[in-house]
Computed example of a mutant assay.
Amino acid sequence: MRDLFLLDPELVFLNHGSFGACPREVIEAQQRWQLEMERNPVDFLGRRSAALLLQARSALAAELGADPEHLVFVPNATTGVNVVTQSFVLAPGDEVLSTNLEYGACDAAWQHVCAAQGASYRRVDIPLPFDADSFVERLLAAVTPRTRLIYASHITSTTALTLPVAALCRAARERGITTLIDGAHAPGQIALDLDAIGADFYVGNCHKWMCAPKGAGFLHARPEHHARLDAPVISWGYAEGTGGHTGFDAYLGRTLFERRMQWQGTRDLSAWLAVPAAIAFQRRHDWPAVRARCHALAREALDALTQRHGLQPIARDADWAQMVAIPVPAQDPEALRQRLYAESGIELPVTAHGGRTFVRISVQGYTRRGEIERLLAAPALC
Rank of each mutant, 00 (worst) to 15 (best):
L4W: 15
V12E: 09
N15C: 14
P23A: 15
P23W: 15
P23K: 14
R24C: 15
A29W: 15
R32E: 10
E36N: 14
M37R: 15
F44Y: 15
S49G: 07
A50S: 07
L54G: 06
A62I: 12
A66L: 03
L71I: 05
V74G: 04
D94R: 02
E95G: 06
E95A: 04
N100Q: 14
E102L: 13
C106D: 02
C106V: 12
D107Y: 09
A108S: 08
Q111F: 07
H112M: 13
A115V: 06
A116P: 13
Q117R: 08
L128E: 02
A141C: 09
V143A: 06
R146H: 15
T147E: 02
R148M: 08
Y151T: 04
S153V: 04
I155Y: 07
R170W: 10
A171V: 01
A172E: 01
R173I: 04
T178W: 01
H185C: 00
A191W: 14
D200F: 06
N205E: 10
C206W: 01
K208S: 08
A212D: 09
L219M: 10
A221Y: 04
R228D: 10
L229I: 07
D230G: 03
A231Y: 04
V233G: 00
V233L: 02
I234G: 05
Y238M: 01
H245E: 12
A250S: 01
L256V: 03
R259W: 00
Q264C: 00
G265S: 11
A271K: 09
L273D: 03
L273A: 12
A274R: 11
A274P: 09
F281L: 05
A292Y: 00
H295D: 00
A296T: 00
E300M: 01
A304C: 12
A304D: 11
Q307F: 05
R316S: 07
I326Q: 00
P329W: 14
E334H: 13
A335N: 08
S344G: 06
G345P: 12
I346V: 13
V350C: 06
F358Y: 01
V363D: 15
G370R: 10
A378H: 14
P379K: 08
P379T: 04
C382L: 09
